[in-house]
Design a binder for these strands. Structure first.
Ligand SMILES: NC(=O)c1ccc[n+]([C@@H]2O[C@H](COP(=O)([O-])OP(=O)(O)OC[C@H]3O[C@@H](n4cnc5c(N)ncnc54)[C@H](O)[C@@H]3O)[C@@H](O)[C@H]2O)c1
Ligand SMILES: NC(=O)c1ccc[n+]([C@@H]2O[C@H](COP(=O)([O-])OP(=O)(O)OC[C@H]3O[C@@H](n4cnc5c(N)ncnc54)[C@H](O)[C@@H]3O)[C@@H](O)[C@H]2O)c1
Lengths: 215, 215
DNA sequence: CTGATTTTGTGAAATGTAAAACTATATTCA
DNA sequence: TGAATATAGTTTTACATTTCACAAAATCAG
């Protein structure tokens, strides 16, 4: 049976459910209802049930969801059931912060290398991390069979770096550079645009003062 | 005349338009059509026109939009016409990267202080930045009349820090901690959850392999 | 100066997403 | 054992957003 494709908004909520489940399991909670999940996530219970229904029926009526079972299912749905290999391009301030964080705090991914074109950045104090110059890119991507890259280079060079990544078989890019990237069909780009987040927050922070909507 | 409230999706696109306009003005482009804006942003021309229409009529039929004029209007709409004062709470890896970036690259906001509870973090090599211990929070917020905070503390302490921020009059928070924050009515929280971005990207990177949607 | 062209601004239709209502199934306890 | 209760899963309805289609207004060419 072929299920309807899940909307983007649903996919964005799956990792939230996963995180809550991880916390619950750590606290030895074995069963959770959509109602309680609702309290923890802020999404409505109906929405949570509907989201999960895109992928199957994982609960028990009258009881709720088994936390470990649902976690396993979510891992498989999201694609985290086997550790995803990732590279980071642009080992500057943000690249370093993200690399360190994902190596220490994110068990679902494995950073197999960081890359920079500045020779001064080719060292690190992060344990277990290799920092390479850009000419090692092809070699590492192929040897490790990497498909996912985090891009933290300046906006001016982002497109040219992306072209190289795509050439070498990268199919998914988390882009922090504030610029629109052009990629061929089949290469996914997610923009994590921190400036946009901040500016739209400022919009809302002023809304109450009645400025924004007046003529 | 009172206009209809702009949807969140529209508000998120306004900073994108602003950025493109900044680039165009830097290249001395004076007039831009919605069609070309569409090419630059990836949004459809109709959508761009409709977005702007929530706030007024800023273009000239037959010609397009004057870049400088539209920029001024957008600045005022978003609330960037006067520099917004911001504080950063949690001067760790991510907090440092964001602070440095916004001090150097983001002319629309002014970081008036960073805060940390670890005495080792109370120094910095960022020019013009003051790093304070947490007991200076009230004082700085009041003296500078700050309303917006960037939150980069560990998830475990995020809620207790938020309570302090709210107590002291902060009304908008950009939250990087992977946890749901509870705030009273009138306090805006935007979650910038980088782990969710990465995990949902992984979902899409596997979609083509036909795994995710099969029974 | 006039008709053709361009491009904005906007109402209507289509699509996508969320919420609500409902149904089915399991559990609990008298 | 069976009625009451709890909760998942499904269908329906409402709402939000995008796309479409075109009128209105400005410009341009001759
Ligand atoms: N730091 C932030 O908080 C922040 C916030 C919003 C957006 N961003 C965006 O994220 C990106 C990185 O920001 P950052 O603060 O880390 O900047 P950064 O200058 O500290 O780091 C950029 C790194 O990319 C490297 N680099 C430059 N050209 C390269 C190339 N062609 N190939 C490989 N590496 C190259 C540089 O050597 C540097 O180490 C930028 O696009 C920035 O606009 C950053
Ligand atoms: N670094 C990343 O790339 C990344 C990615 C995703 C999410 N995050 C989240 O962002 C937050 C910060 O991450 P980080 O990597 O910068 O961590 P970090 O440990 O480097 O920084 C956290 C800082 O907060 C300070 N702090 C702790 N408790 C505090 C308190 N009660 N009051 C004030 N300051 C306090 C610490 O002293 C430290 O300097 C975390 O919640 C993390 O989960 C970070």
């Amino acid at each position: 049976m072929s299920r309807k494709k899940a909307p983007k908004s649903v996919v964005k909520r799956l990792p939230v459910y996963l995180r809550i489940l991880d916390n619950l399991i750590r606290r030895d909670v074995e069963i959770i209802s959509s109602r309680v999940l609702s309290d923890e996530t802020g999404f409505t219970a109906e929405q949570i049930r509907k989201d999960l229904a895109y992928f199957g029926a994982f609960g028990t009526r009258g009881t709720g969801y088994n936390t470990s079972y649902l976690r396993e299912k979510l891992l498989r749905i999201i694609g985290l059931d086997k550790q995803t290999k990732i590279i980071v391009i642009g080992f500057g301030h943000l690249g370093k912060a993200l690399t360190r964080y994902n190596m220490n705090k994110n068990p679902y991914v494995k950073i197999v290398g960081a890359f920079d074109n500045d020779p001064n950045e080719l060292h690190t104090d992060i344990e277990g991390l290799q920092v390479y110059s850009m000419d090692k890119l092809s070699e590492v991507i192929q040897k490790e069979d990497v498909k996912v890259a985090i891009l933290t280079v300046p906006a001016e060079v982002a497109q040219q770096v992306v072209d190289i990544l795509v050439e070498n078989g990268i199919t998914a890019i988390l882009n922090f550079a504030p610029t629109k990237l052009h990629t061929p069909e089949g290469v996914y780009v997610h923009n994590a645009d921190l400036t946009i987040e901040l500016q739209s927050l400022i919009y809302y922070s002023q809304e109450d003062e009645g400025r924004a909507l007046k003529e």
